[in-house]
Design a protein around this nucleic acid. Structure first.
Length: 413
RNA sequence: GUGGUCGUAGCUCAAUGGUAGAGCUCCAGAUUGUGGUUCUGGUUGUUGCGGGUUCGAGUCCCGUCGGCCACCCCA
């Protein structure tokens, strides 16, 4: 028996790596004043139908439950957030700065960097229509990557604006019904042959391709970059109107984060969705919002790919897995005395381990070494004195067991 | 979902159609209370699974499951 395709087992090493990512996500989100929320993994399929676009529906991990309800494992966190906000918005002062870390699912053939279950960080600012919120979120996404040890040579945030394209489509008198399709064609233009894009765009192909080649000009996007420049983060971003993003609910600024080499999938992506909360509340609540999501899988691959980031992670994980003290039971008749002090040391907050069954002293020291213990405390013939040994220097000192805490404290402080 | 490719010990990989192996890991030892090295010994396989061809299949053929890559799509 093994895990289902696209689902992962997390052995202790994997779990440590995952928690390393979570810890950094939380730390930076809190630096920015965001608070954490959570929601159900399973939602009514209806929550995603018509809100996110057809593409996402086709890849939902959905089924009918025993109560004949149509349900879906959440493919992303934003609809759940919008649903919660629509129901509880009066309980909070605006703007809300919320983040969440949770598993998301999709039913499709897995590939590198894309599994059926992955974990996303989602950060959103709700209730603030101004560009300041967009800038804050882009800055947050940059700072999150920076704490992992990445710099402007490792990744880039490509920023665009759907309003720029909407204005363009209006100026070309394109009927609103076909906007979504044209936006998707622009989104795909990078990955598709030029001829196919031209064919799809028809009469619009000349002006659109001209914009794609020369780059679009937008006062809003320039202001956004100015805002990031004021924070010293301008080198991390490129204005790039080719970015549109697949989800239907985006209404303004959209952005995606890529590795500079361009080998991996997008590390993060997001944008403004000013109508989604209104849609999900049937018009009862209208709140502008902007947010982004970052997945653990691609991020993990990027960390492995960059020596600076991977070494930083390795060092952290090695230090965190270490124990402080290994208790060596050299004489079994001292085991009870040793365990009494193990308990006290653990109560004192130290990480302490010892052999559950009688072992040779040599083997116990080997275990102490393997577990990364800083010091070993030996219980044997010297009782009521114990030997306290600093493993790195091999220095040993005999102390009365009543002085153990003072000795440990001076060594580990 | 479509196509290509691969699947041998816990891991990394060997084995012209002729008895399934190595390294690492793991476990146990190297005179009775001291660790990173070294040495010795040991465990582990229905060769992913199921059929077929053959005197004989890890090897060839078909199917199936799983991994990877591309397409699709990308939250």
């Amino acid at each position: 028996m093994q895990a289902l395709p696209g689902f992962r087992d997390f052995l202790p090493t994997d779990c440590a790596a995952r928690n390393y990512i979570f810890a950094h996500w939380r730390e930076v989100a809190r630096r920015y004043g965001f608070v954490e929320w959570d929601g159900p993994v399973l939602e009514p399929t209806e929550l995603y139908r018509k809100k996110s676009g057809d593409e996402i529906i086709g890849q939902l991990f959905n089924f009918t439950d025993k109560g004949e309800r149509e349900v879906a494992l959440r493919p992303e966190l934003t609809p759940t957030l919008a649903r919660i906000i629509a129901a509880h918005e009066r309980e909070f002062k605006k703007p809300l700065k919320w983040f969440s870390i949770g598993s998301c699912f999709r039913y499709e053939k897995q590939q590198r960097g894309r599994l059926r279950e992955h974990i996303q960080l989602n950060c959103d600012v709700i209730g603030e229509p101004g560009l300041a919120a967009d800038i804050e979120l882009v800055a947050l996404s940059i700072d999150i990557l920076r704490v992992f040890g990445f710099n402007e040579k490792d990744f880039v945030v490509r920023i665009s604006d759907r309003e720029f394209w909407i204005d363009f489509l209006k100026s070309q008198n394109v009927p609103e019904a076909s906007w979504q399709e044209i936006l998707q064609t622009i989104d795909k233009s990078e990955r598709e042959p030029r001829e196919k894009t031209i064919e799809k765009l028809g009469a619009l192909s000349d002006p659109v391709l001209a914009i794609l080649e020369k780059g679009g000009r937008s006062e809003k996007l320039e202001k956004l970059v100015d805002g990031l420049r004021a924070r010293g983060l301008a080198d991390f971003v490129d204005v790039d109107v080719r970015i549109v993003r697949g989800l239907a609910y985006y209404t303004g600024i959209v952005f995606e984060v890529f590795d500079r080499v361009g080998k991996l999938r997008a590390v993060a992506g997001g944008g403004r969705y000013d109508n989604l909360i209104e849609q999900l509340s049937d018009g009862a609540t209208k709140l502008p919002a902007v947010g982004f999501a970052m997945g653990d899988v691609v991020l993990g691959e990027l960390i492995k790919d960059r020596p600076t980031a991977s070494q930083k992670m390795e060092t952290t994980l090695r230090d965190e897995s270490k124990i402080d003290i290994y208790v060596v039971v050299a004489k079994e008749e001292r085991r009870a005395d040793a365990l009494a002090q193990v308990q006290q040391l653990r109560d004192g907050g130290y990480r302490v381990d010892y052999p559950l069954v009688p072992e040779k002293v040599g083997k116990q020291f080997q275990l102490a070494e393997d577990l990364g213990a800083t010091i070993a405390v030996l219980y044997g013939d010297e009782w009521p004195q114990v030997k306290v040994k600093t493993l790195a220097t091999r220095e040993e000192k005999l102390v009365p067991n009543s002085d153990l805490f003072a000795r440990i404290d001076s060594l580990l402080r």
